[in-house]
Design a binder for these strands. Structure first.
Length: 194
DNA sequence: AACTGGCGCAACCGCCAGAAC
DNA sequence: AGTTCTGGCGGTTGCGCCAGT
């Protein structure tokens, strides 16, 4: 797969863009999909005039541009659900994401890795230190290999989720100057369609 | 004020399964 | 039945931001 840019190196198809999406590209993608639907991503990318792989377009759309995508502010209920489902299924992020409307597998994966897993490590270290004293076998934290359903009481061991997604509604994160809000894009898209 | 290390997130990579031919 | 193509998935990386020094 993904042999587009490398192998058959005719000049016309070499030019595949990578890296952060520009606002223009976002607009093109939104415009195209709102007009034609999703369809086959590779042909979509070409038809829309985007110098991106179909894969890249799909990822951008699913994780960022879809109108129903929710970002930031993972609620305690969602956090609990994530831990519960992760305890059942492990790293099946897309499966987990299906039970969290508006959340993407990528977001859940990132959330798990950066927030929960970090805390799991910290707590494990703490437990390792104390367990030598307390001989307790019970782990406070559901690990990846643990199939137990999380007890809601265990939530208290995890970091509060509110301040984990910091202010700025964590969407226009200002991570670089190519960051813009979905509202911007969709309002522009609506304007274009009128 | 400048530097640095950690954090968070967007995006890419590689693999796999199923569809299409 | 075999090959190619495409989408989906999980893992990983790159990079900007920011707090601490």
């Amino acid at each position: 797969m993904e042999k587009i840019s490398s192998s058959s190196s005719t000049a016309s198809e070499v030019e595949i863009r990578k890296g952060p999406w520009t606002m223009e590209e976002d607009l093109i993608l939104i415009n195209y999909i709102s007009g034609h639907g999703e369809g086959v991503w590779n042909t979509l990318a070409k038809s829309a005039g985007l110098k991106r792989t179909g894969k890249s377009c799909r990822l951008r759309w699913l994780n960022y541009l879809r109108p129903d995508v929710r970002r930031g502010n993972i609620t305690p209920e969602e956090q609990l659900l994530i831990m519960d489902l992760h305890a059942k299924w492990g790293n099946r992020w897309s499966k987990i994401a299906k039970h969290l409307p508006g959340r993407t597998d990528n977001e859940i994966k990132n959330y798990w890795r950066t927030r929960i897993q970090k805390h799991v490590k910290q707590t494990d270290n703490f437990n390792a230190q104390t367990s030598s004293v307390e001989s307790s076998q019970v782990s406070m934290i559901p690990t990846q290999t643990c199939n137990n359903v999380v007890n809601p009481a265990e939530l208290s061991y995890y970091p509060p989720c509110e301040n984990t997604m910091n202010t700025s509604s964590s969407f226009a994160t200002g991570i670089n100057e190519n960051t813009w809000s979905l509202e911007d894009l969709w309002s522009l898209q609506l304007l274009n369609n009128e």
